[in-house]
Amino acid sequence: MLFQPAIIALMLASGLAALLVLASVPFAWTVVRRWNLADGSEAQLRMERRTYLVATLLKIVMAAELAALVLFVFNADRMATLFTGAMCAVGTLKVDPWGFPTLYLKLAVFFLAGCWLVLDHVDNRGWDYPLIRVKYAALILLAPVLVGSAVVQGAYFMGLRADVITSCCSTLFSGGGVTVTSNSVASLPHGLALSLLAGSLAAVLASGAVVLRWRRCGWLHALLSVAAFVIGMSAIISTISVYVYEMPHHHCPFCILKREYGHIGYALYVPLFVGTVCGLGAGIAGWAGRRPSLSTMAPLVARSLAAWSVGGYALFGLVALWLIERSHLILFEVVP
């Protein structure tokens, strides 16, 4: 294991987050089994009060996981100097088979925690807490993901040894050759990637508009959000990053976060993440609107989430467009 401050901090954060959620599982189970609002007993009252604690803890976990995600990528990039052949975060993550799974699990935890908080937010608007069982069952399901994320990250960091020869991003993400899954993403033709991106953004914006205007089809918006996220990430790897680096064969989702490129990656990722998490949330809120006690509040929540989601995707699209526009690299000849 590499004994490094950022690594210790990351392990601390994931460990504590997992522990917190794990510690809430017995309580969640009690809620699933015993919750009864009609009961005026003190036990029920205590249970109700305990839900405030769990919600607060989950908020902290989500904030911590978000910060940890940024720290993780940042640190991976920084550690690249420790590994021969690694030039950026991709190299560091490839040092060990657990590297990319750690990243993916961190993303999953972030999105799931976000969904849970939306569920909680909506549920708290219904006078009879109609989703409380769903919510706490979801919490029970969330726990293994968090624990898994902490364990996988532990395995990754434990396995790190400085000076392991790895393939770095310039070979890994350059099209063709090595059989890595991300590779097929990188070799996605630019035209196809951009058309897919434009199509999915148009679709997600349209479905968002439907939610905004008619307060329905939240589920469709959520689905399209997931699609837009995946396509957006692929487009960043295959094409947009190339425009930023102005090098046709440099495909890397992390280097755009670096100072050399003006931290421009944040302007892409933050709106994309906001758009996705709010899009998923809008779907959840729309679904919750079927409960009688939420029939007025949930659509409102869905609407404001959809507004955020639409704003996020629109901003993402604009930033991507601007990056392509300002780039000196020309991938498409305009035929007069």
Binding site: L37, A38, D39, G40, S41, L45, E48, R49, N124, W127, D128, Y129
Partner: peptide
């Protein structure tokens, strides 16, 4: 506070089993 049992109605709305938040 909430009654342990029984009903409290405020303007025809039953508030006896509302959670603290409401």
């Amino acid at each position: 506070a909430r009654p342990t049992s029984g009903r409290v109605k405020l303007k025809e709305r039953d508030i006896s089993s509302l959670p603290e938040r409401f």
